[in-house]
């Protein structure tokens, strides 16, 4: 049985999640429409409200975000690191596809994450897919199965260190 206090906490969490969804949708709508006239605003508010209410479990950018200064700094550093890795992964891939011998040693390895939040795990899986030689194939709670173009190690600890640790460090602070 759920106690009244627990029910209240859950209801508050749901209200907060709906509000976050609403704000995100409205922000994107306003960026897309590019003006702040009254009719654009009314349409945006109505549409965002309906979607936010219909999808209480939807996740967005700001779901489960920790609104602290540390999280903000970690967010900036995360994006810096992310774009650096994205460029690196493209250069490495270019070198592979342009070399006549096609030097690959592919395989699917298993890694583990410490992240608990849904958004944190989503961002981690996405980041892994966009970084050098790795592609998330399957997720099973804390385990991720990652396709690796050049398997450096199929040991769980070593692979986690090479693939997950770089992003986890920042995402842990941002989403938990």
């Amino acid at each position: 049985m759920e106690t009244p206090v627990e029910a209240k906490v859950r209801a508050m969490a749901r209200t907060r999640s709906t509000a976050v969804m609403f704000a995100t949708l409205l922000l994107f709508w306003l960026m897309l429409i590019g003006n702040l006239t009254l009719d654009a605003l009314i349409v945006g508010v109505l549409a965002s409200l309906v979607i936010a209410v219909l999808y209480p479990n939807g996740i967005s950018f700001f779901t489960e975000l920790r609104a602290t200064p540390e999280a903000f700094v970690a967010g900036l550093r995360y994006y810096g690191y992310f774009f650096k890795e994205l460029v690196k992964s493209n250069l490495r891939l270019t070198a592979i596809v342009l070399s006549p011998s096609l030097p690959i040693r592919p395989g699917i390895v298993k890694v583990r994450t410490r992240l608990r939040s849904r958004m944190g795990r989503l961002m981690l899986a996405n980041s892994i897919t966009l970084t050098p030689g790795t592609l998330t194939v399957e997720m099973d709670s804390e385990w991720l199965y990652v396709h690796w173009t050049n398997v450096e190690s199929d040991d769980i600890e070593a692979a986690t260190g090479a693939i997950v640790a770089g992003f986890e460090r920042y995402l842990e602070v941002i989403y938990g």
Partner: peptide, 23 residues
């Protein structure tokens, strides 16, 4: 363009996806 070359040269679906996504 390099991504497209990767799509042609990579040996299997997973490696092709890798080439496709990043580039």
């Amino acid at each position: 363009l390099f991504g497209a070359i990767g799509l042609v040269r990579m040996p299997d679906a997973y490696n092709r996806l890798q080439a496709g996504t990043k580039t």
